[in-house]
Design a protein around this nucleic acid. Structure first.
Ligand SMILES: NC(=O)c1ccc[n+]([C@@H]2O[C@H](COP(=O)([O-])OP(=O)(O)OC[C@H]3O[C@@H](n4cnc5c(N)ncnc54)[C@H](O)[C@@H]3O)[C@@H](O)[C@H]2O)c1
Ligand SMILES: NC(=O)c1ccc[n+]([C@@H]2O[C@H](COP(=O)([O-])OP(=O)(O)OC[C@H]3O[C@@H](n4cnc5c(N)ncnc54)[C@H](O)[C@@H]3O)[C@@H](O)[C@H]2O)c1
Lengths: 239, 239
DNA sequence: CTCGGTTTGTTCTCGCGTTCACAAACTCCT
DNA sequence: AGGAGTTTGTGAACGCGAGAACAAACCGAG
């Protein structure tokens, strides 16, 4: 891995095959580093950063090692330098244009969310199929007809789309997005999307999260009644 | 596992140690079964259900085998029977009372979300620290002062809490929830929560999801420019 | 009853991810 | 300069989960 480290230092677009589990944690590290930076911390050890990110320090170091050798032994990591390196690796040193489709309860909340802009994303359009919603202004952005998707996607080179429509409409919306060249979809509708292999889909599903909590909750209370030997249940952050 | 299967058939509160990965998929199967049931399907094979749930059929069968032997070889699964068994296993045959704290953009959207009720959850209170929000009615429920948490949690035996406050307030809210006996928390604030080991925390983080998509998106476009040999990138649903 | 077709439940294997543990490397103090 | 103390980066061990493959079990026809 020594060679990889050197390559990472010299050529910006390097870093072969980062494990998916690591990729999912990089944003967490990035956020922790931003917080540390805002607090005026110049350097931090892997242990400090691990605590701030809520993970094991060994895991943190291994994750960072996939990006290169950005730390100094005996000292730790330069907060701003590491922050930049992770941001670059994730790809949020420039803003990504994003469209949100389905401007109902959830879509409006998302549009109003200020955390996007500051974390590498820019909402370029709000689209809805319901004419009654059109011409409304949400978070300073006009709500446009869904039919405008193709034009907007082309004009802004949109690669990422957010689906916040009812479940029945989600597959149609996804198909149209794919047809417009969108290759990454964040889906809030509780349904399975069928997309070509080159398109990435991530889903955020409220009910599933709650049901997972309910399962463990049931176990806790039943275990108490039942008197069964429940081993140490870890309450670690489960992503 | 033969013994476990028999036990599962006879005693309702059985099913030792279901793997976490399986637990996370049970809600997906449940939803697929509900859809199938509503379509009038009486029985289905593991292959059909797997397609509906967006997973491999071998994985599905293995997952279900942890609950017991609820299928019939050569036939498949009785949709309604399996649906009930999974619902019982997850613990959503009765409703769980839930409190939502932080009734801003996101909290209001959550309160208005009708999918909770139908999936085993009942919002019993909306709490906010801002007096300006009090006495507003969202989704037919009064917004109450945050100080009411203890009384409400006790009166309704609330075990599950949802945090939709700004990040800076999230840890305080979590501490108060834990003090009130809440042992499961769904956190929307982009921060790491410190809670006792017996408390389960699940987080839903928009920015992280988008950043993961951005990472892969960057790889796709860079790979094209670079002409590097990018192996077959799978676009499967990543939870 | 028997046989062919079908589908489940389970075993086995492989790869990924987590964690431990430690050598290498760096700083600071004497 | 050298040694003590600190922290990184990584090799190795281990456990969990994914998937292929197959025997066991069930149905229906004849
Ligand atoms: N509100 C929540 O907190 C919440 C929580 C979890 C999941 N969800 C899911 O998110 C999705 C949106 O929820 P919501 O509460 O905002 O629903 P909503 O009904 O308030 O809004 C849906 C919007 O989508 C629009 N729409 C419908 N079909 C469309 C189409 N084909 N193209 C474009 N727009 C279309 C509608 O006009 C409407 O404005 C749903 O699938 C819901 O299950 C919502
Ligand atoms: N809106 C979104 O789509 C979105 C997306 C991703 C993440 N988030 C996160 O969800 C959280 C809420 O987002 P939002 O857009 O609804 O923010 P918001 O500012 O609209 O609402 C926050 C609410 O929490 C209340 N609050 C503040 N401190 C409190 C306390 N100590 N106790 C109880 N209530 C308190 C405020 O009065 C306000 O009503 C934030 O952490 C945000 O980062 C929101």
């Amino acid at each position: 891995m020594e060679r990889a480290a050197v390559t990472a230092r010299t050529s910006p677009e390097s870093a072969r095959d980062i494990p998916e589990a690591t990729v999912a944690r990089l944003p967490v590290y990035l956020r922790a580093l931003v917080t540390l930076s805002e607090q005026g911390t110049a350097t931090c050890s892997s242990e400090e950063l691990a605590v701030a990110a809520g993970v094991n320090s060994a895991k943190l170091r291994k994750d960072l090692s996939y990006l290169g050798s950005y730390g100094t032994r005996g000292v730790g990591y330069d907060v701003d330098y590491l922050r930049y390196q992770i941001a670059r690796e994730i790809g949020v040193t420039q803003d990504w244009p994003v469209v949100i489709v389905g401007i109902g309860n959830l879509g409006q909340a998302l549009a109003n969310y200020s955390g996007f802009r500051s974390r590498g994303f820019r909402v370029v359009a709000l689209l809805d199929a319901d004419p009654a919603r059109h011409d409304a202004v949400v978070a300073g952005i006009d709500v446009r007809p869904f039919a405008d998707l193709e034009r907007i996607a082309r004009e802004h080179s949109v690669a990422i789309g957010v689906i916040a429509t009812p479940a029945v409409a989600a597959q149609d919306v996804a198909d149209r997005m794919v047809a417009c060249g969108i290759t990454s979809i964040l889906n809030f509708a509780p349904t399975v999307l069928n997309v070509p292999a080159e398109v990435d889909v991530r889903k955020v599903d409220l009910s599933i999260e709650l049901q997972i909590l309910a399962y463990h909750e049931q176990r806790k209370t039943n275990g108490a009644q039942n008197g069964a030997q429940d081993g140490a249940r870890e309450g670690a952050q489960t992503a």
